[in-house]
Design a protein around this nucleic acid. Structure first.
Length: 487
RNA sequence: GCUCUCAUCGUCUAGUGGCCUAGGACACCAGCCUCUCACGUUGGCAACACGGGUUCAAAUCCCGUUGGGAGUACCA
């Protein structure tokens, strides 16, 4: 990245508090964070809460909790005041920051008061083509007319006055984009409730907060020319724009709230690790030079280069994401994984070994919902038929199974230490004694313990899970069933 | 509709005119390992949207077509 920018870079994550964090949002935050950290700059968080109709309790908490759990620490923001605060737009409104600049623009002739109500605009545009732009006479009102209207208490908004000509701006990803100003609408800067619109507050704050790199979704690409015009009118320099392509679902549509995996919070609840989430979304629309796919946050900081962000959108592939999460599970120590998965184990009998259960899960699950599949032999024995004792490849028949189980049962009953090491020794000793193949003992044991053709873990692991009582009970059941049939 | 924008295996991607009979990863399939499953490992399947140019040479540059996405709010 640009060495010359080192130390002076300021990026900002500017979410509006909607009550949930979209993975696209998180990726934007991540890219902001990476750029700031890579260039030893400053990462700012600013809350854009100018929509008073959409106030949601605890919405900000979701944002900060998510950033925290993902380790994206910020340098300035709410509860971390810097020199250019406050960092909540609703508080900035109270200081009259936005109105001041709006009035300045009106003075200059770059904005105007508009007294048209929402209803009449809607009526007008409905009668004509729905796509047609609304035109009123407000831009041409005289000073006296305006003053009169205001005196009468007529509600008004302040709109940007779009000049004639063409406007172009440069985006770091998409290059130069030019549009004819006739395509641009006189957008509202100040709403009738006195609050600024997102568009206006955004550029004012980005400038006042000395933001150098503006990272946002590419849905803003089409409104950026309007911002360019505003910057020009105010005589300010534009930041570097970095518009990121969208993250989509399998149908190539914008990831919607309905889909569980659009929400970071849901992902967390489903057992996805923050590091895996961060790692995966970083790779949606960007990839490191060496092609490595498993990257820690510090590796991401090292490798990230915003110039290499793609132009085309990418699909959020749950399968690959699950794979990656599984990789993170496997990379944990068994102690770490045990602590992580413990709360999910509550629904299994407490007399069983949770440690061994966790061990069985670690290499077999990629998120919580896989657990029941893997541990389906725990509570019941659904496929418990005598057929499971037969295995042609291992030369195991029901007779042999019955014989082995019957012979080993007294040994198991005498054994009290059901630790992995000991139980392994006991069984191995028996195998040697009998002079048979491993499988001829282990297969019947595994089948008896799990009651299934296939199970997570082998005979030894299952002994450890069930410990003595349940192990004996299951083997006795197997013996009984087999002898009933073979009588 | 209009404006902007995008286009390599099913998906994430490497690729910036010759190194490409297009590489990697997920998924899928097969072999090996093995007391089953899983893990691991080895191999396989599979793509430059289409049509024109430019060039000795194009996935890479230009134009068009088709297809996708976004915007078009007193939402952000």
């Amino acid at each position: 990245m640009d060495k010359k920018d080192e130390g002076i870079v300021r990026t900002r994550f500017a979410p509006s508090p909607t009550g949930y964090m979209h993975v696209g949002n998180l990726r934007t935050a991540l890219y902001c964070y990476l750029i700031a950290r890579k260039l030893k700059g400053t990462f700012v968080v600013r809350i854009e809460d100018t929509d008073r109709n959409r106030f949601i309790e605890d919405a900000e908490k979701v944002i900060f909790d998510t950033l925290k759990v993902c380790n994206l620490d910020y340098d300035e923001g709410p509860n971390k005041e810097g020199k250019v605060g406050p960092y909540k737009q609703s508080e900035r409104v109270k200081q009259g920051i936005y109105l001041k600049y709006a009035k300045q623009l009106v003075e200059q002739g770059d904005a105007y008061y508009c007294f048209c109500g929402k209803e009449e605009i809607e009526e007008e545009t409905c009668e004509n083509n729905a796509f047609e732009k609304f035109k009123c006479n407000c831009p041409n009102l005289t000073k006296e007319e305006i003053e009169n209207n205001i005196k009468q208490g007529k509600p008004y908004v302040i709109r940007q006055r779009i000049p004639e000509g063409k406007t172009s701006f440069v985006d770091a990803i998409y290059g130069t984009i030019e549009v004819d100003n006739s395509e641009l609408e006189d957008m509202i800067l100040i709403k009738s409730d006195g609050y600024p619109t997102y568009n206006f507050a955004n550029i004012i704050d980005d400038h006042l907060m000395n933001i150098t790199h503006v990272v946002r979704g590419c849905e803003y690409l089409s409104s950026t020319p309007k911002y360019t015009l505003l910057y020009k009118a105010l005589g300010w320099n534009e930041p570097i724009y970095i518009h990121c392509p969208h993250i989509t679902d399998e149908e190539h549509k914008k990831l919607s709230k309905r889909l569980g995996h659009a929400s970071v919070n849901n992902l967390l609840k489903e057992g996805f690790l923050p590091q895996a989430i961060v790692n995966y979304i970083a790779l949606l629309g960007w990839s490191p030079e060496d092609g490595q796919e498993i990257l820690s946050l510090s590796q991401l900081i090292e490798e990230f280069d915003y110039h290499k962000i793609h132009k085309s959108s990418s699909v959020f592939d749950l399968k690959k994401f699950k794979w990656m999460n599984g990789e993170y599970y496997k990379a944990m120590s068994s102690e770490e994984f045990f602590e992580f998965i413990k709360p999910q184990l509550n629904r299994f009998p407490t007399e069983y070994s949770y440690e061994e259960l966790a061990d069985l899960l670690q290499e077999r699950i990629e998120c919580y919902s896989d657990i029941d599949n893997v541990l389906d032999f725990i509570n019941e024995l659904p496929d418990y038929t005598n057929e499971i004792f037969e295995n042609q490849k291992l030369k195991v028949t029901k007779d042999i199974a019955l014989e082995m189980l019957t012979k080993i049962l007294p040994i198991l009953e005498k054994t009290n230490d059901y630790s992995k090491d000991n139980i392994t020794n006991v069984v191995k000793e028996f195998i040697t004694e009998q002079n048979v193949k491993n499988g001829q003992v282990l297969w019947p044991l595994r089948a008896a313990l799990s009651g299934k053709m296939s199970s997570a873990g082998g005979a030894y692991e299952l002994f450890v899970v069930f410990k003595k009582d349940e192990s004996i009970r299951r083997i006795k059941t197997a013996i009984q069933k087999l002898s009933e049939e073979l009588k």
